[in-house]
Simulated assay, not measured.
Amino acid sequence: MNSGSSSSSTGFTTGQEASAVIGQNNLTTGVSNNDGSGTAGGFSLSTIGDDCNSGTGPKGTPLFSNGKLFVPDTGNCRTLVFNSVPTSNYPTASFVIGQTNGTSWSNTVSASVSTGPVDIATDGTKLLISDQTANRVLVYNTFPTASNASANVVIGQTNTTNTASNSTSRSTFRQHKGGLAVAGGKVLVSDYDRCGVLIWNSIPTADGANADLVLGQANFTNTGGMLSLEGCLTSRGVWTDGTKLLVVDSLYHKVFVWNTFPTSTGQAADLVLGSDDLDTYPAISGSGNNLLNGPTYVTSDGTRIFVTDSGNNRVLIWNSWPTVSGAAADVVLGQSSFSGTSANTTATGLKNPQGIALIDSKQLIVTDTGNYRYLIYNAK
């Protein structure tokens, strides 16, 4: 079904309004670091801003686990933690991860300070946070319960004070811009500048552990893209349930789809969304119901697929797992129809969304980067 409205099993409908907002005091405000009055300024457990990373809005994938909601406040170098999914606008977080408290910030990299948190993931016991500015992923062996918690392990660096980049090996990232998933005991991390995704077969227990596989490249030292299903140029968002796998390629406007989890380095995807061309891999961007323009993140419940189509200021939803490349989406959020692409600061609009999370198939949280907010959509 590609009518632009949801079926009874979808739960979300084209152009529907968000139910609540995090980081702003209403659904028509979109300023940096607002203090609840609709004007810039203020730094608290309720604000979303860019005091630490100027000009950087929130990015990446929130997480709901163990009864708590974790949302990256990327520009403020911290992750906000709520004791439940908020039901009203401008909620106050219980504590933060990545800073000593909720009213100040530091950008000095350490085990307790994150300088650009983007994605949050878990295996149910350990918590992982990707820290793009420090080019690393932090591993907490138990869920933090208060501010100023220290990570136990770092992936991508040899210790928790290093911030090196532009290194291509089994244990380092050239440039991690986000893209983190944990499922089936495995850890997947996108390495944007390498043009690939590194895979660890288990959550590392020591700093700087070697990855076991890489996708998008033939080996661990190659960089640059390959014009085929074996390669992606600018990998960003990653989702897996341990069997199926989705990887977003932002520059070439694609989402790679594996129907079964890859078992070898450089293994080709089964199909792509955003194009029906499997081999020549053209850099075609567009709107409509089957083209993408700079997509960044993806999530799924194993059946439906949700993609932040950032350049078109929208989220596309496929109601069923695609069986052919270039399959058309069924639902669009952020626009009233598939032809709309404008940025808006409303209850139905989005501005450069760069993150998405699905909660129990009943709620969708969208990281509305350009509006410095998170929108919560309730299933119909």
Rank of each mutant, 00 (worst) to 15 (best):
S37Q: 10
T29F: 06
L364W: 02
P62Q: 03
K126A: 15
F95R: 09
L227E: 12
L215M: 10
T163G: 00
A269M: 04
K351T: 14
F256R: 06
A183T: 06
Y192R: 12
A283M: 13
D360R: 12
L358F: 04
V109S: 11
A357W: 08
N293P: 08
R314V: 01
T28C: 02
G185R: 08
S19G: 12
N152S: 14
T158L: 02
L213I: 11
V255R: 13
G224F: 00
G216M: 08
Y281Q: 12
R174L: 10
L245E: 10
T142D: 14
T234Y: 07
N141F: 08
Q363P: 01
W318F: 11
I359D: 05
S235W: 04
Y252V: 13
S84V: 04
G216N: 09
T296S: 12
G55Y: 03
T161W: 00
T103I: 11
Q217F: 02
V189E: 05
I120F: 06
A218M: 01
Q132I: 11
K362T: 15
N312H: 02
G57W: 11
R174M: 12
N162G: 13
K244Q: 13
T56P: 01
Y372Q: 06
G349V: 06
T172H: 10
G49M: 05
Y297S: 13
G184Y: 05
C232V: 13
P322D: 08
V118K: 12
F143R: 01
A211G: 10
I203Y: 05
V153S: 03
G326L: 03
S150E: 14
S228M: 03
K244T: 07
G98M: 12
D241V: 02
L364A: 04
N222L: 08
K254N: 13
L188I: 01
N313Y: 05
Q24F: 09
V154G: 00
T323I: 12
A164S: 15
V315F: 01
V307Y: 00
G334F: 00
A151V: 03
T265P: 12
L246A: 07
S6C: 13
D73Y: 00
Y90P: 00
G216W: 11
L80Y: 06
T163W: 00
G102M: 04
G156H: 02
F12Y: 07
S275W: 07
P144F: 12
S167T: 14
